[in-house]
């Protein structure tokens, strides 16, 4: 993956950011591009309007709590989020993020990251670096097979590969 050392500006959020503010119910039947316009608007109305591709979402504890709706991840991805960083994630959101190829990093010190700072993200080394101050933040490393899945774009492309191999074996048999 070329993702090593991507940089992005930090959008900072508090604890317990839930899936209803990430993907509000009233827009759940709308096309993703419209749903994404309302992503996080209940807590930060500027977010969807001013978010730039590559920007980094830094949350507090239990980021993504609530629903299993993948649109919570898809809306962030649609807006171009480069990574989501938090001291802890809600279990389903975390799995969904990795399954959809969105880098989710558990960073115990996420609370110290400054809003609007610019971070370089090194997924392989599980490290964030503040471009201006040089301060680094260690994250929990992801196992190689999950990093590979994220690099492939998520579970679906990963399954596509796997099925292709399986089918070519079956064709040979």
């Amino acid at each position: 993956m070329t993702a090593a050392n991507k940089t992005g500006r930090v959008w900072k959020f508090g604890d317990n950011i839930d899936t209803d503010v990430l993907a509000p119910g009233p827009y759940m039947k709308s096309p993703l591009v419209d749903l994404a316009k309302h992503c996080l608007e209940a807590v930060e109305p500027r977010f969807a309007k001013e978010m730039k591709p590559g920007d980094i979402v830094v949350g507090g504890r239990n980021f993504g709590m609530g629903s299993s709706r993948e649109q919570a991840v898809m809306a962030l991805r649609e807006l171009g989020a480069g990574a989501v960083v938090a001291p802890s994630f809600a279990g389903i959101f975390y799995r969904n993020a990795l399954n959809l190829g969105l880098l989710a990093l558990v960073c115990p010190e996420a609370g110290k990251i400054r809003a609007d700072s610019v971070l370089a993200v090194d997924a392989a080394r599980a490290e964030l670096r503040d471009i201006e101050t040089g301060k680094t933040y260690a994250c929990e490393p992801l196992p190689a097979h999950l990093l590979q899945m994220i690099a492939d774009g998520g579970l679906l492309p990963h399954l596509e590969k796997k099925l292709k191999v399986q089918r070519s074996k079956e064709a040979q048999a």
Partner: peptide
Amino acid sequence: FGVGATEMCGVLVT
């Protein structure tokens, strides 16, 4: 337990 749709797709296939 609950899963998202992509993970569900994985279950449906495998």
